[in-house]
Computed example of a mutant assay.
Amino acid sequence: MNRVAVVTGGTRGIGEAISVALKKAGYKVAAVYGGDEAKAKAFTHETGIPAYKVDVSDFKQCQTGLQKIAADLGPIDIVINNAGITRDGTLHKMTAEQWEAVIHTNLSSCFNTCRSVIDSMRERGFGRIVNIGSINGQAGQYGQVNYAAAKSGIHGFTKALAQEGAAKNITVNAIAPGYIDTDMVRAVPPQVLEKIVAKIPVGRLGQASEIARGVLFLVADEAGFITGSTLSINGGQHMY
């Protein structure tokens, strides 16, 4: 398979699982990371997937980085917007810097990557874009007004861009993970995590590989009639 896929935040957690699953399925994959060079080098050594350091919150860096990937691997057919951070705090204690960091990294990055590849996708008449939202963008979460706003914005961005891309065979969908067994979730205090799991009907955290399976479904050539959709993978915690 000659399809080229870019995964932002692609060297760890959910992004790592997506990158590996895409490679195993035969795609040419580029994993984009923001800062942890040691982790990125280890990831490439273990998987054979090239990692590119790009600040996806910066439009010019994003353009340059994706141009580099296209020059190395070929025109980009698939973009998985997975990059995300948290800077939690209740609104009355949240700083402007905490708000802006999350909005730019989690939401503006979707514009930056998609704007950088959309012209090429339109010219070639093919594209698959999957944006990783969140259960907390659907239901909200105490202490996460910045994160919930960014992830909710991703869902709206997805539906609007899906309408624009449909005539050119560019599908745009979202996945809204629930609580997944990653470093980010495992950093939650045990007593809080226990309460979270108690609210999940299947009785456990999700696995990153389960999100990757959803991505593989949505990016397939055969998935051309699925666009503007949000696939909730949350163990039944929030049915939306």
Rank of each mutant, 00 (worst) to 15 (best):
G15K: 02
Q144F: 03
A25K: 13
F225S: 11
R213Q: 14
P177T: 03
T113P: 02
A220V: 01
Y179S: 14
V172M: 06
L66T: 08
Q98N: 12
I211G: 07
S209V: 14
V215W: 07
P177C: 00
A101S: 14
L218N: 04
S57F: 00
S209K: 14
S19P: 09
A71I: 03
I154A: 09
M1Q: 15
K168T: 15
A187Y: 01
L205P: 15
T95P: 09
N173A: 05
D221F: 02
G74H: 10
R12C: 05
R12H: 03
D88T: 05
A187S: 13
A139N: 14
R213D: 15
V145H: 10
T113W: 01
A42C: 07
K168W: 14
E37S: 12
Q144S: 01
N106R: 02
V7K: 04
A71F: 06
I211E: 11
A38H: 15
R128Q: 10
F217G: 08
V6H: 02
G206R: 04
A42W: 04
D58I: 05
G156L: 05
K39V: 12
V185C: 02
F126D: 13
H92D: 15
T171F: 03
A176G: 14
S109N: 03
L91K: 10
I175V: 10
G178R: 07
I170W: 03
N82I: 07
V215G: 01
T230W: 02
H45C: 09
I85W: 01
Q237L: 12
Y240M: 13
G137I: 03
R213A: 13
T230G: 05
A167F: 06
R186L: 08
L66H: 06
D183Q: 13
E97S: 11
A38C: 09
A101R: 07
F157H: 11
Q67S: 14
G84S: 08
A71C: 06
I170Y: 04
A21Q: 07
R122C: 11
L161R: 09
V172H: 05
M239I: 14
N2M: 12
G34F: 03
N106L: 00
A40K: 08
Q63Y: 03
E164I: 06
V145Y: 05
A70Y: 04
N2K: 15
V79K: 10
I76P: 00
G84C: 01
N81R: 06
G34Y: 08
V130D: 10
A174C: 11
G65E: 05
V145L: 12
A150Y: 00
T95M: 07
R122F: 05
V6C: 04
A83W: 00
L73T: 08
S229F: 05
E46W: 00
G133S: 14
A220W: 04
F157Y: 15
V56L: 02
R87T: 00
G26T: 09
V117R: 02
M184P: 03
I226S: 09
E46K: 14
N112K: 04
I76N: 01
M94L: 15
H238V: 15
V145D: 11
L107A: 06
R204C: 03
G15Q: 09
A83H: 00
R186D: 11
D181A: 14
V172I: 11
T86V: 13
V4D: 09
G224K: 10
G178N: 08
Y33F: 11
G13L: 07
K151A: 10
I233A: 06
I49Y: 06
L205A: 10
P75H: 10
S57I: 03
